[in-house]
Design a binder for these strands. Sequence first.
RNA 1: AGAGAGUUGGCGGAGUGGUCGAACGCGGCGGUCUUGAAAACCGUUGACUGUAACAGGUCCGGGGGUUCGAAUCCCUCACUCUCUGCCA
Length: 424
Amino acid sequence: MLQLTVLREQTDQVIAGLNKKNYKNAAEEVAALLELDQQRRQVQNEHDELQRQANTMAKAIGSLMKSGEREKAEAYKTETAELKQKTKALAELLSTTEAQIQQALYKLPNLPHESVPAGRTAEDNEVVLQNGEIPDLHEGALPHWELIQKYDIIDFELGNKITGAGFPVYKKQGARLQRALINFFLDEAIAAGYMEVQPPILVNETSGYGTGQLPDKDGQMYHATADNLYLIPTAEVPITNIYRDTIVPVEQLPIKNTGHTPCFRREAGSWGADVRGLNRLHQFDKVEIVQVTLPEKSYQALEEMSDHIQGLLQKLELPYRVLRLCGGDMSFTASLTFDMEVYSAAQGRWLEVSSASNFETYQANRLKLRYKNESGKTQLLHTLNGSALALPRIVAAILENNQTLDGINMPKVLHPYLGFEKIS
RNA sequence: AGAGAGUUGGCGGAGUGGUCGAACGCGGCGGUCUUGAAAACCGUUGACUGUAACAGGUCCGGGGGUUCGAAUCCCUCACUCUCUGCCA
Protein backbone atom coordinates (compact mmCIF):
# COMPACT_ATOMS: atom_id res chain seq x y z
CA MET A 1 0.00 0.00 0.00
CA LEU A 2 1.24 3.46 -0.83
CA GLN A 3 2.06 5.83 1.99
CA LEU A 4 -0.22 8.79 2.49
CA THR A 5 2.73 11.09 3.11
CA VAL A 6 4.05 10.20 -0.33
CA LEU A 7 0.67 10.99 -1.88
CA ARG A 8 0.66 14.30 -0.07
CA GLU A 9 4.18 15.36 -0.82
CA GLN A 10 4.74 13.91 -4.30
CA THR A 11 1.26 14.03 -5.73
CA ASP A 12 2.29 14.59 -9.33
CA GLN A 13 4.83 11.79 -9.39
CA VAL A 14 2.26 9.45 -7.86
CA ILE A 15 -0.30 10.24 -10.52
CA ALA A 16 2.30 9.85 -13.28
CA GLY A 17 3.34 6.49 -11.80
CA LEU A 18 -0.23 5.22 -11.58
CA ASN A 19 -0.82 6.26 -15.17
CA LYS A 20 2.26 4.39 -16.29
CA LYS A 21 0.89 1.33 -14.56
CA ASN A 22 -2.23 1.73 -16.61
CA TYR A 23 -4.39 2.68 -13.66
CA LYS A 24 -7.58 4.44 -14.64
CA ASN A 25 -8.77 7.68 -13.04
CA ALA A 26 -5.51 8.14 -11.17
CA ALA A 27 -5.77 11.91 -10.88
CA GLU A 28 -9.38 11.86 -9.67
CA GLU A 29 -8.82 9.12 -7.13
CA VAL A 30 -5.69 10.68 -5.73
CA ALA A 31 -7.44 14.03 -5.40
CA ALA A 32 -10.36 12.37 -3.63
CA LEU A 33 -7.96 10.60 -1.30
CA LEU A 34 -6.13 13.77 -0.40
CA GLU A 35 -9.46 15.43 0.26
CA LEU A 36 -10.42 12.60 2.61
CA ASP A 37 -7.04 12.78 4.28
CA GLN A 38 -7.47 16.50 4.86
CA GLN A 39 -10.89 15.89 6.29
CA ARG A 40 -9.67 13.11 8.51
CA ARG A 41 -6.96 15.21 10.07
CA GLN A 42 -9.38 18.04 10.74
CA VAL A 43 -11.90 15.72 12.37
CA GLN A 44 -9.15 14.14 14.40
CA ASN A 45 -8.00 17.52 15.67
CA GLU A 46 -11.53 18.43 16.78
CA HIS A 47 -12.02 15.04 18.34
CA ASP A 48 -8.72 15.18 20.19
CA GLU A 49 -9.52 18.60 21.56
CA LEU A 50 -12.83 17.40 23.03
CA GLN A 51 -11.12 14.33 24.36
CA ARG A 52 -8.56 16.53 26.04
CA GLN A 53 -11.30 18.51 27.75
CA ALA A 54 -13.03 15.34 28.89
CA ASN A 55 -9.78 13.99 30.28
CA THR A 56 -9.06 17.09 32.33
CA MET A 57 -12.62 17.11 33.67
CA ALA A 58 -12.43 13.47 34.65
CA LYS A 59 -9.27 14.21 36.57
CA ALA A 60 -10.86 17.21 38.21
CA ILE A 61 -13.82 15.08 39.29
CA GLY A 62 -11.43 12.57 40.74
CA SER A 63 -9.71 15.11 42.96
CA LEU A 64 -13.01 16.74 43.95
CA MET A 65 -14.32 13.37 45.07
CA LYS A 66 -11.21 12.85 47.13
CA SER A 67 -11.51 16.19 48.85
CA GLY A 68 -15.18 15.53 49.53
CA GLU A 69 -16.70 18.24 47.33
CA ARG A 70 -19.57 16.10 46.11
CA GLU A 71 -21.89 18.78 44.68
CA LYS A 72 -19.18 20.37 42.62
CA ALA A 73 -18.26 16.97 41.23
CA GLU A 74 -21.86 16.27 40.30
CA ALA A 75 -22.03 19.57 38.43
CA TYR A 76 -18.97 18.62 36.44
CA LYS A 77 -20.51 15.28 35.58
CA THR A 78 -23.51 16.83 33.84
CA GLU A 79 -21.13 19.00 31.86
CA THR A 80 -19.16 16.03 30.62
CA ALA A 81 -22.31 14.33 29.34
CA GLU A 82 -22.64 16.83 26.51
CA LEU A 83 -18.96 16.61 25.75
CA LYS A 84 -19.27 12.86 25.49
CA GLN A 85 -22.05 13.04 22.94
CA LYS A 86 -20.04 15.30 20.68
CA THR A 87 -16.92 13.21 21.06
CA LYS A 88 -18.78 10.08 20.15
CA ALA A 89 -20.20 11.59 16.98
CA LEU A 90 -16.76 12.79 15.94
CA ALA A 91 -15.20 9.42 16.73
CA GLU A 92 -17.71 7.73 14.44
CA LEU A 93 -17.02 10.17 11.65
CA LEU A 94 -13.32 9.65 12.20
CA SER A 95 -13.52 5.89 11.90
CA THR A 96 -15.70 5.92 8.80
CA THR A 97 -13.30 8.39 7.18
CA GLU A 98 -10.36 6.22 8.11
CA ALA A 99 -12.08 3.18 6.65
CA GLN A 100 -12.73 5.05 3.41
CA ILE A 101 -9.10 6.09 3.19
CA GLN A 102 -7.96 2.57 3.89
CA GLN A 103 -10.19 1.14 1.18
CA ALA A 104 -9.07 3.71 -1.35
CA LEU A 105 -5.44 3.03 -0.54
CA TYR A 106 -5.88 -0.72 -0.91
CA LYS A 107 -7.17 -0.12 -4.41
CA LEU A 108 -4.08 1.75 -5.57
CA PRO A 109 -1.30 -0.37 -7.08
CA ASN A 110 2.38 0.18 -6.41
CA LEU A 111 4.25 2.83 -8.37
CA PRO A 112 6.64 1.64 -11.08
CA HIS A 113 10.39 2.19 -10.86
CA GLU A 114 11.75 4.80 -13.28
CA SER A 115 13.37 2.10 -15.42
CA VAL A 116 10.02 0.43 -16.13
CA PRO A 117 9.12 0.78 -19.80
CA ALA A 118 5.78 2.29 -20.70
CA GLY A 119 3.27 -0.09 -22.22
CA ARG A 120 0.02 -1.92 -21.80
CA THR A 121 0.49 -5.60 -22.54
CA ALA A 122 3.07 -8.38 -22.66
CA GLU A 123 3.91 -7.17 -26.20
CA ASP A 124 5.46 -4.07 -24.66
CA ASN A 125 7.83 -5.90 -22.32
CA GLU A 126 11.48 -5.26 -22.98
CA VAL A 127 13.78 -8.19 -23.74
CA VAL A 128 16.85 -7.50 -21.62
CA LEU A 129 18.91 -10.44 -22.75
CA GLN A 130 18.75 -13.90 -24.26
CA ASN A 131 21.09 -16.72 -23.44
CA GLY A 132 21.66 -20.36 -24.41
CA GLU A 133 21.27 -22.22 -27.62
CA ILE A 134 17.88 -23.03 -29.05
CA PRO A 135 18.00 -26.75 -29.83
CA ASP A 136 17.37 -28.31 -33.21
CA LEU A 137 14.91 -31.08 -32.59
CA HIS A 138 14.79 -34.25 -34.62
CA GLU A 139 12.06 -34.97 -37.11
CA GLY A 140 8.79 -35.86 -35.36
CA ALA A 141 9.75 -34.33 -32.01
CA LEU A 142 6.87 -34.31 -29.54
CA PRO A 143 5.41 -31.65 -27.25
CA HIS A 144 5.79 -32.51 -23.57
CA TRP A 145 2.16 -33.58 -23.13
CA GLU A 146 2.82 -36.40 -25.57
CA LEU A 147 6.23 -37.21 -24.14
CA ILE A 148 4.82 -37.69 -20.65
CA GLN A 149 2.35 -40.21 -22.04
CA LYS A 150 4.96 -41.96 -24.10
CA TYR A 151 7.22 -42.46 -21.07
CA ASP A 152 4.35 -42.67 -18.56
CA ILE A 153 5.81 -40.16 -16.14
CA ILE A 154 2.96 -37.70 -15.56
CA ASP A 155 -0.71 -38.64 -15.61
CA PHE A 156 -3.39 -36.02 -16.11
CA GLU A 157 -6.25 -38.53 -16.32
CA LEU A 158 -5.52 -39.82 -12.84
CA GLY A 159 -5.47 -36.25 -11.54
CA ASN A 160 -8.82 -35.63 -13.20
CA LYS A 161 -10.24 -38.62 -11.40
CA ILE A 162 -8.90 -37.69 -8.00
CA THR A 163 -9.37 -33.93 -8.10
CA GLY A 164 -10.04 -32.34 -11.46
CA ALA A 165 -8.30 -30.65 -14.36
CA GLY A 166 -4.94 -29.12 -13.60
CA PHE A 167 -3.93 -31.49 -10.82
CA PRO A 168 -1.59 -34.03 -12.45
CA VAL A 169 -0.14 -37.13 -10.82
CA TYR A 170 3.63 -37.43 -11.22
CA LYS A 171 4.86 -40.99 -11.50
CA LYS A 172 8.10 -42.96 -11.62
CA GLN A 173 10.89 -40.94 -13.25
CA GLY A 174 8.51 -38.00 -13.45
CA ALA A 175 8.06 -37.94 -9.66
CA ARG A 176 11.78 -38.44 -9.25
CA LEU A 177 12.48 -35.50 -11.52
CA GLN A 178 10.23 -33.28 -9.41
CA ARG A 179 12.05 -34.25 -6.24
CA ALA A 180 15.44 -33.76 -7.88
CA LEU A 181 14.59 -30.27 -9.07
CA ILE A 182 13.26 -29.23 -5.67
CA ASN A 183 16.42 -30.41 -3.95
CA PHE A 184 18.67 -28.87 -6.56
CA PHE A 185 16.92 -25.50 -6.30
CA LEU A 186 16.98 -25.50 -2.51
CA ASP A 187 20.65 -26.48 -2.36
CA GLU A 188 21.55 -23.71 -4.78
CA ALA A 189 19.59 -21.15 -2.76
CA ILE A 190 21.22 -22.26 0.48
CA ALA A 191 24.63 -22.01 -1.19
CA ALA A 192 23.71 -18.44 -2.18
CA GLY A 193 23.08 -17.55 1.46
CA TYR A 194 19.36 -18.12 1.80
CA MET A 195 17.93 -19.74 4.92
CA GLU A 196 15.52 -22.57 4.23
CA VAL A 197 12.07 -22.44 5.79
CA GLN A 198 9.01 -24.66 5.53
CA PRO A 199 6.01 -22.40 6.03
CA PRO A 200 2.31 -23.28 6.31
CA ILE A 201 0.54 -23.51 2.98
CA LEU A 202 -2.76 -22.28 4.35
CA VAL A 203 -2.77 -18.65 5.43
CA ASN A 204 -5.25 -16.39 7.16
CA GLU A 205 -6.86 -13.29 5.76
CA THR A 206 -4.43 -10.90 7.41
CA SER A 207 -1.49 -12.57 5.68
CA GLY A 208 -3.31 -12.32 2.35
CA TYR A 209 -3.65 -8.58 2.84
CA GLY A 210 -0.07 -8.30 4.03
CA THR A 211 1.51 -9.30 0.75
CA GLY A 212 -1.25 -7.80 -1.38
CA GLN A 213 -3.07 -10.88 -2.72
CA LEU A 214 -6.14 -9.53 -0.93
CA PRO A 215 -8.27 -7.78 -1.79
CA ASP A 216 -6.93 -7.58 -5.35
CA LYS A 217 -6.74 -11.26 -6.27
CA ASP A 218 -9.44 -12.69 -4.08
CA GLY A 219 -10.92 -14.86 -6.82
CA GLN A 220 -7.56 -16.37 -7.75
CA MET A 221 -6.99 -18.16 -4.46
CA TYR A 222 -8.65 -21.31 -3.15
CA HIS A 223 -10.57 -20.33 -0.06
CA ALA A 224 -11.31 -22.75 2.77
CA THR A 225 -14.39 -20.91 3.96
CA ALA A 226 -15.14 -23.03 7.02
CA ASP A 227 -11.99 -21.68 8.63
CA ASN A 228 -11.52 -18.58 6.49
CA LEU A 229 -8.09 -19.71 5.33
CA TYR A 230 -6.56 -19.46 1.88
CA LEU A 231 -4.38 -21.97 0.06
CA ILE A 232 -1.23 -20.10 -0.87
CA PRO A 233 -0.75 -19.12 -4.53
CA THR A 234 2.98 -18.74 -3.81
CA ALA A 235 5.36 -19.20 -0.87
CA GLU A 236 5.87 -15.45 -1.01
CA VAL A 237 2.75 -15.08 1.14
CA PRO A 238 3.72 -17.13 4.22
CA ILE A 239 7.45 -16.43 3.98
CA THR A 240 7.10 -12.67 3.71
CA ASN A 241 4.44 -12.65 6.43
CA ILE A 242 6.95 -14.15 8.83
CA TYR A 243 8.11 -10.57 9.20
CA ARG A 244 4.74 -8.91 9.57
CA ASP A 245 4.61 -6.46 12.48
CA THR A 246 8.30 -6.49 13.18
CA ILE A 247 11.02 -3.94 13.58
CA VAL A 248 14.09 -5.76 12.32
CA PRO A 249 17.46 -4.98 13.92
CA VAL A 250 19.66 -3.49 11.17
CA GLU A 251 22.45 -6.00 11.74
CA GLN A 252 20.07 -8.81 10.72
CA LEU A 253 19.61 -7.31 7.26
CA PRO A 254 19.40 -8.38 4.56
CA ILE A 255 17.03 -11.22 5.38
CA LYS A 256 17.29 -13.98 2.78
CA ASN A 257 14.86 -16.88 2.97
CA THR A 258 14.02 -19.71 0.65
CA GLY A 259 11.37 -22.38 0.76
CA HIS A 260 9.70 -25.05 -1.27
CA THR A 261 5.91 -25.25 -1.25
CA PRO A 262 3.12 -26.41 -3.46
CA CYS A 263 1.24 -23.45 -4.91
CA PHE A 264 -2.46 -23.32 -5.68
CA ARG A 265 -4.10 -21.10 -8.24
CA ARG A 266 -7.67 -21.13 -9.38
CA GLU A 267 -6.67 -19.43 -12.66
CA ALA A 268 -10.26 -18.39 -13.06
CA GLY A 269 -10.97 -17.39 -16.62
CA SER A 270 -7.46 -17.94 -17.91
CA TRP A 271 -7.84 -21.31 -19.62
CA GLY A 272 -7.50 -21.51 -23.35
CA ALA A 273 -5.76 -23.22 -26.22
CA ASP A 274 -2.23 -22.42 -25.00
CA VAL A 275 -2.51 -24.09 -21.65
CA ARG A 276 -2.16 -27.73 -22.51
CA GLY A 277 -0.08 -30.06 -20.44
CA LEU A 278 2.14 -28.48 -17.85
CA ASN A 279 1.80 -24.97 -19.18
CA ARG A 280 -0.78 -24.00 -16.59
CA LEU A 281 -1.87 -25.96 -13.53
CA HIS A 282 -4.00 -25.45 -10.45
CA GLN A 283 -1.38 -27.03 -8.23
CA PHE A 284 2.36 -26.91 -8.81
CA ASP A 285 5.62 -26.88 -6.90
CA LYS A 286 7.89 -23.94 -6.60
CA VAL A 287 11.01 -22.92 -4.73
CA GLU A 288 10.81 -19.28 -3.77
CA ILE A 289 13.48 -16.82 -2.68
CA VAL A 290 12.53 -13.85 -0.53
CA GLN A 291 14.61 -10.89 0.63
CA VAL A 292 14.02 -8.07 3.05
CA THR A 293 16.53 -5.26 2.64
CA LEU A 294 17.36 -1.68 3.47
CA PRO A 295 15.72 0.70 0.97
CA GLU A 296 19.03 1.77 -0.55
CA LYS A 297 20.09 -1.83 -1.15
CA SER A 298 16.96 -3.31 -2.71
CA TYR A 299 17.79 -2.83 -6.39
CA GLN A 300 21.18 -4.36 -5.89
CA ALA A 301 19.38 -7.29 -4.24
CA LEU A 302 17.04 -7.59 -7.20
CA GLU A 303 20.04 -7.86 -9.53
CA GLU A 304 21.50 -10.51 -7.28
CA MET A 305 18.27 -12.50 -7.35
CA SER A 306 18.06 -12.19 -11.12
CA ASP A 307 21.64 -13.49 -11.42
CA HIS A 308 20.86 -16.38 -9.12
CA ILE A 309 17.84 -17.40 -11.16
CA GLN A 310 19.77 -17.12 -14.43
CA GLY A 311 22.50 -19.27 -12.89
CA LEU A 312 19.94 -22.02 -12.30
CA LEU A 313 18.75 -21.87 -15.89
CA GLN A 314 22.31 -21.99 -17.17
CA LYS A 315 23.10 -25.02 -15.03
CA LEU A 316 19.99 -26.70 -16.37
CA GLU A 317 21.26 -25.88 -19.88
CA LEU A 318 18.02 -24.25 -20.89
CA PRO A 319 17.81 -21.39 -23.40
CA TYR A 320 16.22 -18.45 -21.66
CA ARG A 321 15.56 -14.77 -21.93
CA VAL A 322 15.01 -12.03 -19.38
CA LEU A 323 12.22 -9.51 -19.71
CA ARG A 324 11.78 -6.20 -18.01
CA LEU A 325 8.03 -5.94 -17.59
CA CYS A 326 6.26 -2.85 -18.82
CA GLY A 327 3.99 -0.79 -16.58
CA GLY A 328 0.79 -2.39 -17.80
CA ASP A 329 1.98 -6.00 -17.44
CA MET A 330 3.48 -5.75 -13.98
CA SER A 331 1.68 -7.11 -10.96
CA PHE A 332 -0.34 -4.87 -8.71
CA THR A 333 2.24 -4.78 -5.94
CA ALA A 334 5.55 -4.55 -7.85
CA SER A 335 7.83 -1.61 -8.57
CA LEU A 336 10.07 -3.48 -10.95
CA THR A 337 9.79 -7.02 -12.25
CA PHE A 338 12.06 -9.24 -14.31
CA ASP A 339 10.46 -12.28 -15.87
CA MET A 340 12.56 -15.23 -16.93
CA GLU A 341 11.30 -17.35 -19.77
CA VAL A 342 12.65 -20.64 -21.07
CA TYR A 343 12.30 -21.80 -24.62
CA SER A 344 10.20 -24.89 -24.94
CA ALA A 345 11.43 -26.20 -28.27
CA ALA A 346 8.65 -28.54 -29.39
CA GLN A 347 5.94 -26.02 -28.63
CA GLY A 348 8.13 -23.31 -30.09
CA ARG A 349 7.17 -20.98 -27.25
CA TRP A 350 8.79 -19.00 -24.47
CA LEU A 351 7.40 -20.05 -21.10
CA GLU A 352 7.54 -17.90 -17.99
CA VAL A 353 9.32 -19.83 -15.24
CA SER A 354 10.25 -17.07 -12.86
CA SER A 355 9.29 -13.59 -11.86
CA ALA A 356 11.56 -11.54 -9.63
CA SER A 357 10.19 -8.34 -8.19
CA ASN A 358 11.08 -5.48 -5.93
CA PHE A 359 8.05 -4.24 -4.01
CA GLU A 360 9.93 -1.41 -2.33
CA THR A 361 7.81 -0.31 0.64
CA TYR A 362 4.46 -1.39 -0.81
CA GLN A 363 4.21 -4.70 1.06
CA ALA A 364 6.24 -3.44 4.02
CA ASN A 365 3.67 -0.72 4.61
CA ARG A 366 0.88 -3.26 4.84
CA LEU A 367 3.04 -5.64 6.83
CA LYS A 368 4.35 -2.96 9.19
CA LEU A 369 7.82 -4.29 8.47
CA ARG A 370 10.34 -1.70 9.57
CA TYR A 371 13.80 -0.88 10.91
CA LYS A 372 15.33 1.98 12.79
CA ASN A 373 17.66 4.26 10.84
CA GLU A 374 20.79 5.93 12.25
CA SER A 375 18.78 8.72 13.81
CA GLY A 376 16.53 6.20 15.53
CA LYS A 377 13.50 6.79 13.34
CA THR A 378 11.40 3.77 12.38
CA GLN A 379 11.17 3.39 8.63
CA LEU A 380 9.77 0.89 6.17
CA LEU A 381 12.01 -1.78 4.70
CA HIS A 382 11.91 -3.11 1.15
CA THR A 383 10.68 -6.60 0.26
CA LEU A 384 11.58 -8.68 -2.79
CA ASN A 385 10.91 -12.14 -4.06
CA GLY A 386 11.45 -14.39 -7.01
CA SER A 387 10.72 -17.89 -8.18
CA ALA A 388 13.81 -20.02 -8.16
CA LEU A 389 12.13 -21.81 -9.78
CA ALA A 390 8.61 -22.92 -10.64
CA LEU A 391 8.74 -26.58 -11.67
CA PRO A 392 6.16 -27.51 -14.29
CA ARG A 393 7.35 -25.36 -17.17
CA ILE A 394 10.96 -26.19 -16.38
CA VAL A 395 9.97 -29.84 -16.66
CA ALA A 396 8.19 -29.14 -19.93
CA ALA A 397 11.27 -27.46 -21.40
CA ILE A 398 13.66 -30.13 -20.15
CA LEU A 399 11.51 -32.86 -21.67
CA GLU A 400 10.98 -31.17 -25.01
CA ASN A 401 14.46 -29.76 -25.52
CA ASN A 402 16.37 -32.88 -24.60
CA GLN A 403 14.30 -35.52 -26.33
CA THR A 404 15.99 -38.05 -28.58
CA LEU A 405 14.56 -40.94 -30.46
CA ASP A 406 15.33 -43.33 -27.64
CA GLY A 407 14.75 -41.26 -24.54
CA ILE A 408 15.14 -37.90 -22.86
CA ASN A 409 18.56 -36.81 -21.62
CA MET A 410 18.64 -35.17 -18.21
CA PRO A 411 20.81 -32.09 -17.52
CA LYS A 412 24.13 -33.06 -15.95
CA VAL A 413 23.61 -31.10 -12.73
CA LEU A 414 20.59 -33.23 -11.96
CA HIS A 415 22.29 -36.60 -12.37
CA PRO A 416 23.38 -36.90 -8.74
CA TYR A 417 19.89 -35.90 -7.61
CA LEU A 418 18.11 -38.21 -10.03
CA GLY A 419 20.07 -41.41 -9.88
CA PHE A 420 19.57 -41.77 -13.65
CA GLU A 421 20.70 -39.86 -16.72
CA LYS A 422 17.96 -40.51 -19.16
CA ILE A 423 14.21 -40.98 -19.12
CA SER A 424 13.38 -43.99 -21.23
C1' A B 1 -13.78 -31.69 21.29
C1' G B 2 -14.74 -31.02 27.09
C1' A B 3 -12.94 -28.57 31.91
C1' G B 4 -9.84 -24.97 34.06
C1' A B 5 -6.03 -21.03 33.86
C1' G B 6 -3.97 -17.19 31.22
C1' U B 7 -2.72 -13.04 27.25
C1' U B 8 0.75 -6.26 30.26
C1' G B 9 6.71 -2.52 27.06
C1' G B 10 12.83 -6.16 23.63
C1' C B 11 12.39 -10.11 27.70
C1' G B 12 10.80 -11.51 32.81
C1' G B 13 7.10 -9.71 35.90
C1' A B 14 3.90 -6.12 39.33
C1' G B 15 -0.52 -3.71 38.99
C1' U B 16 -8.54 -5.35 40.55
C1' G B 17 -11.89 1.68 39.17
C1' G B 18 -8.79 7.84 39.61
C1' U B 19 -2.48 11.67 38.38
C1' C B 20 -0.56 4.26 35.16
C1' G B 21 2.30 4.66 29.27
C1' A B 22 2.37 1.54 33.39
C1' A B 23 6.47 -0.47 39.73
C1' C B 24 10.69 -3.66 39.84
C1' G B 25 14.45 -6.77 37.51
C1' C B 26 17.12 -8.08 33.00
C1' G B 27 18.65 -6.44 28.34
C1' G B 28 19.88 -1.95 25.11
C1' C B 29 21.95 3.06 24.79
C1' G B 30 24.82 7.35 27.03
C1' G B 31 28.07 8.75 30.98
C1' U B 32 31.43 8.49 35.60
C1' C B 33 35.50 5.43 37.07
C1' U B 34 39.71 2.55 34.30
C1' U B 35 45.87 2.32 30.34
C1' G B 36 41.69 -0.77 28.13
C1' A B 37 37.81 -3.96 29.70
C1' A B 38 34.73 -6.03 33.58
C1' A B 39 32.35 -4.71 38.11
C1' A B 40 30.08 -0.63 40.53
C1' C B 41 27.44 3.92 40.27
C1' C B 42 24.40 7.85 37.58
C1' G B 43 21.19 8.87 33.61
C1' U B 44 18.28 7.13 29.58
C1' U B 45 15.28 3.53 27.01
C1' G B 46 7.86 1.45 23.31
C1' A B 47 4.55 2.20 19.06
C1' C B 48 0.91 5.03 16.29
C1' U B 49 -1.25 9.77 15.23
C1' G B 50 -0.64 14.86 15.16
C1' U B 51 2.20 19.85 14.67
C1' A B 52 6.36 24.23 11.07
C1' A B 53 7.90 22.96 16.00
C1' C B 54 5.62 22.51 20.72
C1' A B 55 1.01 20.97 22.57
C1' G B 56 -2.65 17.36 22.17
C1' G B 57 -4.80 12.37 21.21
C1' U B 58 -4.61 6.79 20.97
C1' C B 59 -2.54 2.00 22.35
C1' C B 60 -1.84 -3.03 28.56
C1' G B 61 -4.35 -9.87 22.78
C1' G B 62 -8.79 -7.95 18.90
C1' G B 63 -13.77 -5.84 18.99
C1' G B 64 -17.92 -3.91 21.84
C1' G B 65 -20.10 -2.15 26.59
C1' U B 66 -20.63 0.02 31.85
C1' U B 67 -18.55 4.68 34.19
C1' C B 68 -17.32 11.60 34.97
C1' G B 69 -12.97 8.20 34.80
C1' A B 70 -10.94 1.18 32.90
C1' A B 71 -4.75 -2.36 32.26
C1' U B 72 -8.33 -3.03 36.29
C1' C B 73 -15.71 -4.39 35.93
C1' C B 74 -19.16 -6.79 31.95
C1' C B 75 -19.94 -9.16 26.92
C1' U B 76 -17.68 -11.31 22.69
C1' C B 77 -13.88 -13.25 19.48
C1' A B 78 -8.92 -15.02 18.79
C1' C B 79 -4.74 -17.22 20.69
C1' U B 80 -1.60 -19.75 24.57
C1' C B 81 -0.96 -23.21 28.63
C1' U B 82 -2.55 -27.50 31.94
C1' C B 83 -5.70 -31.88 32.49
C1' U B 84 -9.15 -35.33 29.80
C1' G B 85 -10.56 -37.27 24.87
C1' C B 86 -9.15 -38.13 19.75
C1' C B 87 -5.17 -38.51 16.32
C1' A B 88 -0.27 -38.62 11.96
